[in-house]
Design a protein around this nucleic acid. Structure first.
Lengths: 107, 107
DNA sequence: TATTCCCATAACCATAGGGTTATGAATTGG
DNA sequence: CCAATTCATAACCCTATGGTTATGGGAATA
């Protein structure tokens, strides 16, 4: 399961993928065409990235007719917060409560 | 200067590198031989990873005779916390104060 | 029904980068 | 002074992966 951590880091390492996730966080649910516009890469590339993000649990999709809406799952960031807090040395800090909060944000 | 954020994510994406950083965070200053023991890869590989970590500002080295001591620079994690907080949507939260704290932890 | 649109998959290519061994410079110890 | 140790660099290899174009299936629209 702490393999989820590795998955998260690897997934977020790519700038295009991070940018897609950022857009979904900021602007909410989007279709693939909408995301492709301004992504700087082709539609198949966007689809592939969305697939990776989905496999990491960072996004969820909602098929609707011929469209597919994607949305961010912020709660999936919890392991990242967890790792950072451990590395920073704040074992007993407020991070813990924040992590719980993120875990429950799964929507 | 390439984006510090991007550099951080890319640097921490590799599990071997993350493991080295974790050890430096937990166990404090270490020489290269010490880090190589238990790293699971060769000494040149460790040296290369340490070079990448250093370029990202995540570690600092202290040459002493024929030994080189490496230590973690936890403050370099600040952009990671920053990004996570922005994505999670806690702009006005305790993250801010934590980020300041990390910024001042630069040692 | 025919056409257009959205999206995913397949097949392929090129590069980044993480691993190795070989080597050498610098330092310390016998 | 010679040997051993520490570390970084060089020169490779090989795989993972991010990009592309081509294609096709399902859904809306004319």
């Amino acid at each position: 399961m702490p393999d989820a951590q590795d998955m998260l880091f690897r997934t977020l390492a790519d700038p295009t993928r991070r940018s897609l996730f950022e857009r979904l966080c900021r602007e909410g649910e989007q279709t693939v065409v909408a995301l492709t516009a301004g992504a700087g890469v082709s539609q198949p590339a966007v689809s592939k990235h969305l697939g990776v993000l989905k496999a990491a649990g960072l996004v969820a999709d909602r098929p609707e007719g011929r469209l597919t809406h994607y949305r961010a799952r912020r709660g999936a960031l919890a392991p990242l917060v967890d790792w950072t807090s451990r590395m920073a040395g704040f074992w007993e800090s407020r991070f813990d409560e924040l992590e719980d909060l993120l875990a429950r944000m799964d929507q």
